[in-house]
Write a protein that binds this DNA or RNA. Structure first.
Length: 257
DNA sequence: ATGTCATAAGATTTATGA
């Protein structure tokens, strides 16, 4: 099973790019983030015509997450991150597909840091850690994937010294990611490519893609039950070079059936 | 500080987020 994550940065503005990528990369399951569309404006018909069923949680202007599948029913488990009924952002959706629990997340950016947005990021991370730990106790195959908005280590950014005060690379954000690893989750990309320079995001500013000034912030965390099945992991970097593209590239893993 | 995109309100631009 090929599972992908893609922060589309507006699902409707990116629809031609999304459809072309679905056709060329043919993932079985897709997690999308930053739909930037209200619930009614999700392009369900175009995605169905591409061969995928979908569940999604939209929101006006910002955020929004979706799970697509072409390999079987999507059985929704929840569409918000548990733990704070006052958090109205559409940033998490979870479902079972083909016997695998798929958590699709769009973690808060958190800039500027420090400040209320960074506080929100850290509180979201605390809730996420509680939920992730509960998932591990189920001892089931689980993938937590999406835009984490965290640069895990200095190897995951073109110039780490420029990012030390940024919410994506602050010690608190890195520590929260390491805490997830310490719980028992496996960073799938690094499991298969421990030394390689791998980026998943390039800023729209200053020709960042042309200079390969990127960040690795889109991740796959696997529960122990899935690690033996991990076969491949890669970034569809070419998509970042297409016209009218997102600032993120799609990332995917392949699991043995 | 800058740069680029996207959205929304309501305007022929501005603000906000990323």
């Amino acid at each position: 099973m090929k599972i992908a994550t893609y922060n589309v940065n507006s699902v409707n503005a990116r629809l031609p790019v999304l459809l072309r990528w679905l056709q060329e990369s043919a993932p079985d399951v897709v997690c999308l983030q930053e739909l930037k569309a209200i619930q009614e404006n999700f392009p369900e018909e175009a995605i169905r015509n591409a061969g995928y069923t979908a569940i999604w949680h939209g929101q006006k202007s910002w955020n929004g997450v979706a799970i697509l599948s072409r390999v079987g029913n999507i059985t929704e488990r929840c569409r918000v991150l548990p733990g704070d009924p006052e958090d109205l952002h559409s940033r998490y959706i979870e479902a079972v597909v083909n016997g695998v629990i798929i958590g699709c997340l769009y973690l808060p950016n958190g800039n500027p840091a420090p400040g209320p947005k960074f506080d929100y990021k850290l509180s979201w991370l605390k809730r996420f850690a509680i939920h992730a730990k509960a998932l591990l106790t189920e001892e089931l195959p689980v993938v937590l994937t999406g835009d984490f908005n965290i640069i895990p280590t200095g190897k995951d950014v073109y110039k780490p010294e420029r990012w030390v005060d940024d919410a994506l690379f602050r010690p608190e954000s890195r520590a929260a990611f390491q805490e997830l690893i310490a719980q028992g989750w496996t960073d799938a990309i690094r499991q298969l490519h421990p030394e390689e320079t791998i980026y998943t995001y390039w800023d729209f500013f200053r020709n960042a893609f042309g200079r390969d000034a990127g960040l690795r912030i889109d991740h796959f965390l696997l529960s122990p039950q899935l690690v033996p099945q991990l076969q491949k992991a890669a970034v569809d970097k070419q998509v970042r070079g297409w016209e009218k593209t997102s600032d993120h590239a799609p990332v995917w893993i392949e699991l043995k059936d």
